[in-house]
Amino acid sequence: MQTPAPVGYAKATSVSDALALLKKHGEDSRIVAGGHSLIPMMRLRIAAPEALIDINDVAELKGISIEGNEIVIGAMVRHAEVLSSPILAEHYAIFREAEKLIADPIVRNRGTIGGSMCQADPSEDLSAVGAALKGSVVIQSASGSRTVALRDFHEGPYMTKVAQTEILTQVRFPIRPGAGSAYEKVERRVGDWPVASAGTYVVVSNGVVADCGIGLTAVGAEHFCAPEAEAFLIGKEPTEENLSAAAQLAADACNPFSDQRGPADYKKHLAHELTLRALRRSAAASQGA
């Protein structure tokens, strides 16, 4: 039987209340949202916070909306809501494709987008989606809020720009008219972490790639993205040859390691193949195929 170490607990009623509770309980307090990463880590005694600040009832962290040119997702939005959101489905197929492959329907009822971002697992699917779409996060502290690009958000495995006295409140994505997007994942069994995943968006205009984004996870891509591959594609026709060359640049920039999910060279192969498949489908969708 795995039981967490003794821990304090407080339920926050608002973001400002959560920030006050974080301050009150000190540096070993942690925000808990869905808890589907933190609670298992506490049971294994990998994490031993002194107090949990529960933000499940904070209404201002919920909901998916459009503000100007951006889609705004509250930090407490659960995977199940990301999966079924008509707003996200309208603009980016990548969300639904990625979410269908994250854990299982019951886990998706609890896990949140804010929690996934803050957990910052090096194999997190939503980190690849966020990096591909060049999204950003809003981080709030008692003195105000700041916006951080997702490609600048991670400081390493399980480490982000969110400081102890801060809370991630929103994840934001720019809307790109005409963009096609897709997500490709290889997993050992249903609901598992990826062996490798790639997500992309492509905007094809006048027969050439006008804009694109490539995100990868579980393969040691720095900041979960592949900027050299993106730069290569801009201005080029989305031919099989060009897409494959871009995918190869993306794979070359990855630095996976061998583990129980597979050897490094296999993961590198997957990085190329999955990026290519995602680019193919993104480009086709952008051209209305």
Partner: peptide, 21 residues
């Protein structure tokens, strides 16, 4: 998933939720 029960109408794996929550 054998510990699945409903919380406010939705199934949840109760081994990964604290009773206080």
């Amino acid at each position: 998933g054998t510990c699945t029960l409903w919380v406010d109408g939705e199934p949840v794996k109760s081994c990964t939720m604290l009773a206080v929550m």
